[in-house]
Design a binder for these strands. Structure first.
Lengths: 333, 333
DNA sequence: TTGAAAGCGCTAACAT
DNA sequence: ATGTTAGCGCTTTCAA
């Protein structure tokens, strides 16, 4: 900047004014500055400027996801980027791999880079470690799961409603023996989906068979095994509600392994690529990760504009996508 | 930092030494500093420190992808993150949407934040705009596609070899009428895959039918239409080599629409989720995006350690994954 | 409309 | 082993 000023024959402050598009610089000087900047291929240093700038904004935010290469997370990522880009804000992103210790390290790494805000998919059972950042005025928004121990903005899918919808859809198809395959029970969203399933069953007055409710299924392999166990039951289910993506895939593999994919109805929670190309095509309750990301990003910026905003809990609706697997009628064992 | 120094009763420099784990601070003082830092929830400001620090490193890099929510790109992203994390480096990522103007804007946005290096999936037909950054000493590595107009490190899949492998696999299965569905011809990787196809056909001494070579197919819909046209030919192909992911999916949709998915062989370039669950399961030449990202990140850091390194061209091998669709024998029209 | 001086939070270089 | 001073590239404040 000093070099540019010298070359343009003006003071350093005038260069600063031109670069920041401040008013009150004569056209002649502005042109000279622009020319000098071009000749020296001058690139302003945002990090230096932000050191003194009012509000000390760095025009960057941090985004913590389970993993950047997980399709659900990646869609959130893209939506956040799109909102941030409109504001000239860059986004740091990182993967926690669902590890609370990683989560904390990454928050520290981003904080030390003075991000203006943080969007976090919380993994831990406790986010009280965030209190110092919050007191320092850093806005934090949680996505996909609610925060624990602190009252923060968060945006979540309507998990109970989605699970009720999925279950009710199967009930409406005439099923009564509907199995539930749930993720680790300590995960808040898994618990909400479980509740939704229970509510729908209760509302329909269908008695619950505990043998059909399997929790703590957490990946493809365990879902496959759980489904095989269900199918081997004396009175197997005629329909399955798989509460999560990987569980849905594992269930499909198991049904195919037994050649039952056209006999046993299946509704999955969360949509996935090519679900429509499978045979049968898979009926799902789709989440809207794009909307989740968009809402979270909007919220960060709203809070940046007005730090006094009360914490808001945003719920994003789900949508039943009928494709075939969920419409298979009850079939005698 | 000043506050911490005051509270600990030491000089600001001593705090700096403790925070940066420099040697030569007595245990007593170090403890006092740590205590004071904790009491004030002091978070060091990396951006301020980097202003003066030797080498002016910001411990951040920029990553430009076609889109962060594209699975191929997301896998590269994760691999880059993993390498960067080991070095305590944070990554800014952004999506170009294949737009050269976005690419340039994002490079400027990241440069003004003084990233230590840039990993770019180039979209434009010319990357000479990077010359000032390169002269300023910013390492740049290209991924997935070679740079144009500048000689830079880059890491690419072995496209010609992968395309030859796919084509030869079909030839070995007895096919002679093998169609080629190619992406936009001006994309360098598309051209390389086209070449690989031509080479394999020539090596096998199979005459080329121009009616079977369709280029400038660039999405699912156009691939679907192209395939329908191929199937309507007086002498349709008995096998198809789809040179890219979306093209493969479009081709599958077309084959199914005509009920020909078990008659016409198909090999796709690039693997995709659930390819093994389709019927028939899809044979592909898989790329290794994780390895591409890892190699690119390693390269950035190697160059950061030694800026004098000559530009290196790294090729990542592909792998034929046999699943069924590519092993369908030639079928009379 | 323009500029000079101070200082953001930190580290380098050089004392002591 | 510890401290002092200068200054990174910029913006702020205030003066001209």
């Amino acid at each position: 900047m000093r070099d540019v000023a010298e070359r343009a024959g003006v003071s350093i402050k005038t260069v600063s004014r031109v670069v920041n598009r401040e008013t009150g610089v004569s056209a002649v000087l502005a042109d000279r500055v622009h020319a000098a900047a071009r000749e020296l291929s001058y690139q302003p240093d945002l990090t230096a400027g932000n050191l003194r700038r009012a509000g000390r904004r760095t025009a960057s935010i941090g985004l913590l996801l389970a993993s950047v290469d997980n399709p659900f997370a990646a869609t959130i990522h893209r939506a956040v980027e799109d909102v941030a880009e409109r504001r000239g804000v860059a986004v740091f992103s990182a993967s926690t791999d669902e590890r609370p210790d990683r989560e904390r390290e990454l928050v520290a790494a981003f904080t030390s880079r003075r991000v203006d805000g943080l969007i976090i998919t919380p993994t831990g059972v406790d986010q009280r470690y965030l209190v110092p950042e919050l007191e320092a005025g850093t806005p934090v928004v949680m996505v996909d799961r609610p925060p624990v121990g602190v009252d923060l903005d968060h945006v979540l899918s309507d998990n109970p409603d989605g699970a009720r919808t999925a279950t009710s859809h199967l009930l409406a198809g005439g099923h009564r023996r509907i199995a539930y395959l749930g993720d680790l029970a300590h995960i808040a969203t898994a618990a909400e989906r479980h509740d939704g399933y229970l509510q729908a069953m209760a509302t329909a007055g269908v008695p619950l068979d505990p043998a059909l409710v399997l929790e703590d299924v957490h990946n493809e392999q365990s879902a496959l095994e759980a489904t095989l166990r269900l199918l081997a039951l004396p009175e197997p289910p005629t329909a399955i509600f798989a509460s999560q993506n990987l569980i849905t895939i594992g269930t499909i593999r198991a049904l195919r392994a037994r050649g039952r994919q056209h006999d046993v109805a299946l509704v999955g929670f969360d949509d996935f690529v090519l679900a429509d190309l499978l045979d049968p095509a898979v009926t799902v309750v789709a989440q809207d990760p794009g909307e989740i990301g968009r809402a979270a990003a909007e919220r960060i910026f709203a809070r940046l504009d007005d730090p006094a905003l009360p914490a808001e809990w945003i719920t994003v609706p789900t949508r039943l996508v009928v494709r075939g697997s969920g419409e298979i009628p009850p079939h005698r064992a």
